[in-house]
């Protein structure tokens, strides 16, 4: 499992390099598709089955398709030579190096949330608190088998049900708001891409005739 994970991660990193440094736009898009798919695989390995599917369907299947279509529509053969000796490039490289180092070191030293708490404090994870499933390891203490999922609990309840319980229960407000967001995005897209209406040609004679008709009709 670990080996598999390592391989997938390395491949994802390489294809990400392809996204950023490809000279042709279409190559970048295809690299991104690959990256997305590889990340989906990572999700699957990390026991997030629902996200695996969603990632493939939405990201790889819709968003990236949209990208490719737009590239095809606008300028498929566009080339883009990034300037090499650019201050921003240096900054960016330094950012990459610095941030990654810091994150790695922090992760190695377990700088993260306190995983041993059993109270409702803010720094605790909910998964440990409600239902005390993880605390006692007793599955029957959690009637929905949804809170806090050690491996066997997820195997019993299923990842989808667990996620669904969170989305529609605790986080139902953000969920509704994101649906509103999608609506706004749809409206925005329609508005941005509409064709500007053409002014109808004014035919003065036609207007005259129409007006005469009206007058005659009112006798």
């Amino acid at each position: 499992m670990n080996v598999l994970l390592a391989v997938i991660l390395i491949l994802a990193a390489i294809s990400a390099l392809g996204v950023v440094f490809s000279s042709k736009t279409i190559y970048s898009a295809l690299s991104l598709v690959l990256t997305v798919a590889l990340l989906a695989a990572v999700f699957l390995v990390l026991n997030a089955q629902f996200l695996f599917v969603v990632q493939l369907i939405v990201y790889a299947g819709a968003v990236m398709v949209l990208f490719v279509f737009i590239i095809a529509l606008l300028d498929p053969a566009a080339e883009d030579r990034p300037r090499i000796f650019d201050l921003r490039l240096i900054l960016g490289v330094l950012a990459v190096a610095g941030l990654c180092t810091a994150v790695f070191i922090a992760a190695r030293n377990d700088v993260t949330y306190d995983t041993s708490c059993t109270t409702q404090a803010v720094t605790c994870m909910h998964g440990y608190t409600v239902g005390s499933l993880a605390a006692t390891g007793d599955l029957s203490a959690d009637p929905f088998h949804t809170f806090g999922f050690p491996e066997n609990a997820v195997d019993r309840a299923g990842n989808v049900q667990t996620l669904a319980n969170q989305i529609f229960h605790t986080y139902v407000l953000p969920f509704e708001i994101t649906s509103l967001l999608l609506l706004v995005a749809a409206v925005g897209a329609v508005y941005l891409t509409r064709r500007v209406a053409v002014e109808p040609r004014r035919d003065p004679q036609a207007e005259e005739r129409w007006r005469d008709d009206l007058v005659e009709g009112s006798d």
Partner: peptide, 20 residues
């Protein structure tokens, strides 16, 4: 830590791409 490292790497790579 390797997951996080990859995530950080991808993130900063993306930032780099935005810049250049």
């Amino acid at each position: 830590p390797w997951i996080l490292l990859t995530a950080a790497f991808l993130f900063t790579l993306g930032a780099l791409g935005v810049l250049i």
